[in-house]
Every structure is written in C-alpha cells, then in structure tokens.
Amino acid sequence: MEPRRMCGREIRGHLLGVYGLEVSPERIPTGTGEVLAEAAQWQHLPLRKGLKMPPVT
C-alpha cells in the first residue's frame, strides 16, 4: 500500500474496513517493511514449469 502513497492513517483505515483488523499506528511502518522484505524474496523464486510471466512494460 505504500507504493500507492497511502499514509499510515489510510493503511490503518483500509485494514479496518476491508479485514476488520485494528492495527496500532506504530505497527504500520514495521509491518509494511516486513511485507516488502518477504515480497522481495518471493520475487526471486524460480517459476514453475509451464507458468509464463507476461512481459513487464
């Protein structure tokens, strides 16, 4: 959500509205950092055979 330039208050409201999840304002930067780190690791996993990636433009 940070790449969309959402501030902590907006992220907190989104999590509450969509998932019913209450998160402290202090947790937002820590949580987004953890998610981004895990996403970076996931991006380097090899693709399964037969799975094709569309070209990135």
Results as ranks from 00 to 15, higher is better:
residue 46 P to H: 06
residue 41 Q to K: 15
residue 6 M to Y: 07
residue 32 T to H: 05
residue 19 Y to M: 06
residue 1 M to Q: 04
residue 4 R to N: 04
residue 15 L to H: 03
residue 34 E to C: 07
residue 12 R to P: 11
residue 2 E to L: 00
residue 7 C to Y: 08
residue 12 R to D: 05
residue 32 T to D: 02
residue 4 R to F: 02
residue 41 Q to M: 10
residue 3 P to W: 01
residue 25 P to R: 04
residue 57 T to C: 08
residue 43 Q to L: 13
residue 27 R to N: 08
residue 1 M to I: 12
residue 40 A to D: 15
residue 19 Y to Q: 12
residue 28 I to V: 02
residue 45 L to T: 14
residue 16 L to E: 12
residue 37 A to W: 01
residue 35 V to A: 12
residue 10 E to W: 02
residue 15 L to K: 00
residue 46 P to C: 03
residue 2 E to K: 15
residue 10 E to I: 00
residue 10 E to G: 04
residue 41 Q to W: 08
residue 45 L to F: 07
residue 43 Q to D: 13
residue 29 P to Q: 01
residue 52 K to R: 14
residue 12 R to F: 02
residue 53 M to W: 13
residue 34 E to L: 13
residue 13 G to N: 15
residue 21 L to D: 01
residue 20 G to P: 08
residue 11 I to H: 05
residue 12 R to V: 09
residue 43 Q to I: 10
residue 13 G to E: 14
residue 7 C to M: 07
residue 39 A to F: 08
residue 15 L to C: 11
residue 22 E to Q: 10
residue 34 E to A: 13
residue 50 G to K: 00
residue 52 K to Q: 12
residue 30 T to S: 11
residue 53 M to G: 12
residue 53 M to V: 13
residue 3 P to S: 01
residue 39 A to K: 06
residue 16 L to T: 11
residue 16 L to A: 10
residue 38 E to G: 06
residue 46 P to W: 07
residue 45 L to S: 09
residue 24 S to G: 05
residue 16 L to H: 13
residue 51 L to Y: 13
residue 48 R to V: 09
residue 16 L to Q: 13
residue 47 L to W: 11
residue 6 M to C: 06
residue 19 Y to K: 12
residue 49 K to H: 10
residue 47 L to M: 13
residue 50 G to N: 02
residue 14 H to D: 05
residue 11 I to G: 03
residue 56 V to W: 05
residue 49 K to M: 09
residue 23 V to A: 01
residue 4 R to V: 02
residue 5 R to K: 03
